[in-house]
Amino acid sequence: MSVAHTGVTPQLSGPCGDDDCGIRDVLDRLGDKWTVLVMVELAKGVRRFRELHRAIPGISQRMLTLTTRRLCRDGLVERTAYPTIPPQVEYRLTPIGLSLATAIEGLAGWSREHKDAMEAARSRWDAAHPGEAG
């Protein structure tokens, strides 16, 4: 842009035009460190809390609780508590959770397919731009 430029830059519309299509909400949820891992595990079938906890290395009980609670609130996961001693809780994907899991699997497939190309591009960038790796 030149120093003399005084025009107003037009506002570009996002992927949904001027309407909010909810993409920010979805990206915020998927950008969470644990959400995708929980969704992937639940795409395999119904899981009890302990099964989820064991299947996702590094997640704390508290973080698993918060993540499943958020997913339930968003309507992506259904929580069923059974009145047993000790209480048993099961989690399953809802129909919209299943549809999102399908989209996540597509993204995961894309990631696997392009992983080597992205690593090669990073190596080329790092070699051409020392100290600018991000």
Score class of each variant (00 low, 15 high):
Thr94Leu: 04
Arg69Thr: 11
Ala108Gln: 15
Pro87Met: 12
Ala81Ser: 13
Leu66Val: 10
Gly106Arg: 14
Val40Gln: 12
Leu100Gln: 04
Glu78Gln: 14
Ser111Gly: 12
Asp18Cys: 04
Arg70Val: 10
Ser99Gln: 11
Val26Glu: 05
Val89Gly: 00
Leu52Asp: 06
Ser60Asn: 01
Pro86Cys: 08
Leu37Arg: 15
Arg50Ile: 09
Arg62Asp: 06
His53Gly: 06
Pro86Arg: 01
Leu52Ile: 09
Thr80Asn: 09
Gly17Cys: 03
Gln61His: 04
Pro57Cys: 02
Asp32Val: 01
Asp18Tyr: 08
Gln61Arg: 13
Arg47Lys: 15
Glu51Gln: 15
Gly31Asn: 07
Val77Gln: 00
Pro95Gly: 05
Pro83Trp: 04
Thr65Ile: 02
Ile56His: 06
Gly45Thr: 08
Ile96Asp: 11
Arg92Ser: 14
Gly97Leu: 02
Thr68Tyr: 00
Leu30Val: 08
Thr102Ser: 11
Arg62Ala: 12
Gly45Leu: 10
Arg50Gln: 12
Leu42Ser: 05
Ala43Arg: 14
Arg54Gly: 03
Asp32Lys: 10
Thr102Asn: 10
Cys72Lys: 09
Ala103Arg: 12
Arg92Trp: 01
Gly75Gln: 01
Ile23Gly: 01
Glu41Met: 11
Asp20Trp: 01
Ala81Gln: 12
Arg69Phe: 06
Ala81Lys: 13
Arg112Gly: 13
Val46Lys: 15
Ser60Glu: 05
Arg24Ala: 11
Gln88Arg: 14
Ala43Trp: 06
